[in-house]
Design a protein around this nucleic acid. Structure first.
Length: 178
DNA sequence: CAGTGGATGCTCT
DNA sequence: GAGCATCCACTGT
């Protein structure tokens, strides 16, 4: 299994399933991702570089962290050639490292089955924005399925959400669509 | 189960 | 001032 962070962001989102994401030794195996690219109305980078999304236009492999709904911190990894403004949203992972730490941060046993939960489990925040991400190579190959992305209102038809087809640790939130 | 709505703050129009 | 790449508690079947 190879993962080319500096290549096509949709391929990177798919290939990232099964890799282990760690922040200060805490994290787990990525089981759900979404790709966002600049020519994509749903992407923060769609309208060009701003103070918030600046990191998306930098080198691949760094965290892009943003505040969601005023409450949550969502964790992305910049994936594209420099200047393109694309990133992969980490939507869920299977907890493997620092489970007790994450349980304490979350206050419940559902640790990382959704982007807001991922942010809380990893204690993500502005301090993480722009830092290099730590990803450990995947073990056994996984069955990956693609679906439309969740929780967005534009470009809802793009099948750029990727999940481990056999993992119980993915988010189950139904997609709101017409 | 499914569906609804509140919390909460920042970005861009 | 509107609109979010969300989560959780609560309601009614």
């Amino acid at each position: 299994m190879t993962l080319d962070l500096a290549g096509d962001v949709v391929s990177a989102a798919r290939d990232m399933i099964g890799w282990t994401l760690l922040v200060d030794g805490v994290g787990g195996v990525v089981v759900e991702t979404e790709a966002y690219r600049q020519d994509d109305p749903a992407s923060h980078s769609y309208s060009g570089m701003t103070a918030r999304n600046e990191v998306m236009f930098g080198p691949a492999g760094r965290f892009y962290v943003y505040r969601s709904y005023g409450i949550h911190w969502c964790v992305n990894i910049v994936c594209c050639p420099p200047g393109e403004g694309a990133a992969v949203l980490i939507r869920a992972f299977e907890p493997t490292h620092g489970i007790e730490t994450m349980r304490a941060r979350r206050g419940r046993d559902d640790l990382a089955s959704g982007p807001g939960k991922v942010g809380q489990a990893l204690a993500a925040g502005p301090h993480l924005n722009g830092l290099a991400a730590e990803l450990l190579p995947a073990g056994a190959p996984r069955r990956v399925v693609a679906t439309p992305r969740i929780g967005i209102t534009r470009a809802v038809d793009k099948p750029w959400r990727f999940l481990d087809a056999d993992s119980p640790f993915v988010s189950r939130r139904p997609r709101v669509s017409a």
